[in-house]
Nucleic acid binder design. Structure first.
Lengths: 103, 103
DNA sequence: TGATTATATGATTAAATGCTCATATAGTAT
DNA sequence: ATACTATATGAGCATTTAATCATATAATCA
């Protein structure tokens, strides 16, 4: 496999490597949301949220559309949910195995 | 979902967010490998590789066993391959859609 | 025992990331 | 036009990450 491929994958995972960004993804699970909804939901600074959204968009994970003064973000490819869910399952599985080894 | 869950997921993805670490994963796809094989394969400094391996192990993605003076690393849960493959597919899909939009 | 080899780790530095405050931009309304 | 609101972005700072060099540790061998 070409080394550029690894870089592309690493970039994708870097976009997912922050808890606020993961939280945004789950919040968008049922469909697009306006920034004006996302900010109060996260209880983070507006400028900070804006940057997290930009990071996810840069990675191609989110896309956005403008409606008047509002901006709506949505998940570009639902496969991201398979990825984050699998990651959680894997972490749980490994943790369970560790527990089993100790008992 | 609890916020600790997002942190756990983010930690997992942080471990995957470097091209060298992704490359290590694919190299271990067929089974465990000694550090003495991994280092020349990657053509990176030994100390650097050691830290990347440690990062993957800390995240529970790899485990290791010692045999004499050698250390063998292996993938702890094969699901990680579903994750990295899905990520690549998703990036490709989004890229194709962008191309389609432009043509 | 001392020498050699494999791997890990401490210290340093450079670069990247995340957060905050302040400000810019753009759309809407008066 | 001015004022107001929603969102994005620049600048500064603190923290984290990655790379490198040097050294430590531990196993093996002569």
């Amino acid at each position: 496999m070409k080394s550029e491929v690894f870089e592309v994958q690493a970039e994708y995972f870097k976009a997912l490597s922050h808890p606020v960004r993961i939280k945004i993804l789950y919040y968008l699970k049922k469909g697009e949301r306006c920034v004006c909804e996302i900010v109060p939901y996260l209880k983070e600074e507006q400028s900070n949220v804006s940057r997290h959204l930009a990071a996810l968009k840069r990675a191609g994970i989110l896309s956005s559309r403008k409606e008047g003064v509002s901006v709506y973000y949505r998940v570009e490819d639902e496969n991201v949910y398979k990825i984050v869910d699998l990651a959680l399952c894997s972490v749980k599985k490994v943790a369970r195995e560790k527990v089993a080894l100790l008992s």
